[in-house]
Simulated scan of single mutants.
Amino acid sequence: MIRWIQKKISRLFNGLWKLFRNGFLTILPIALTIVIFKITLNLIISWLEPLKPFVPTYLDIPYGEVVLAILIIFLFGTILKIFVMRSIINTIENFLIKLPLVRPIYSGIKQLVQAFSAHDKITFKKVVLIEFPRKGIYSVGFLTSELAPDLAPNKEEKFYNIFVPTTPNPTSGYFIILPERDIIIISITRQDAMAMIISGGIIQPKKHF
């Protein structure tokens, strides 16, 4: 009788624990998202605190400094598009590129952002799967271009240049040359592939390969 009661109590606690665990794992991502969003918002508001005096007092707008900053960004973007301020930005960029310590960081980040922008359809042509760093282990990479025939180790076969970003910092990675037969093209976007690489596989595209 006592053993039967103990078994029932054990099952009850196991059931309650499973309910608690499932509820906790469901709520945790939502709670963390809210916390991160709140921390980020508070950080942005603290950065934009100097703009608060410029918000008209008669406009009772919550987070007025944030709204003002957004308007300034839109205005600045419009000015860049319409007027000749683009040349000023280019001058600043050329200055940064000439600085020995700043050049590799700035150039790398800019090229990476441009490569994954919606306007760039050439730099990273396709998302690929390759066996790297050894046979049996696969890595996600980006096909950048076909290797010049003069540089190919085998003239009778096509070789391609592949860039394999590292996790979680995709601004660094490996440059690999592979024959066409060793490259598997996967049908996901560059943005989805980059999200998967940065997150270490936690974020995966809806369309699986």
Rank of each mutant, 00 (worst) to 15 (best):
P50Y: 03
L51M: 06
K52I: 06
F54Y: 15
F54W: 05
V55M: 03
V55I: 08
P56L: 14
T57N: 02
I61V: 15
E65K: 08
V67C: 02
V67Y: 15
L68E: 00
L68C: 07
I70A: 13
F76D: 04
G77I: 13
T78S: 15
T78Q: 11
I82W: 06
F83G: 10
F83E: 00
V84D: 02
S87A: 08
I89T: 09
I89L: 15
T91S: 09
F95R: 02
L96Y: 14
L99T: 09
P100F: 04
L101Y: 00
V102M: 00
R103P: 02
P104K: 01
P104M: 04
I105L: 15
Y106L: 09
G108Y: 05
G108T: 13
L112T: 11
Q114V: 04
Q114H: 12
Q114S: 03
D120W: 08
D120V: 05
I122L: 10
V127W: 03
V128H: 06
E131R: 06
F132R: 11
R134C: 14
K135I: 15
I137N: 04
S139H: 13
S139K: 15
V140W: 02
L143Q: 14
S145C: 11
E146C: 09
D150R: 05
L151S: 12
P153H: 09
E157D: 05
F159I: 05
F159P: 10
F159T: 07
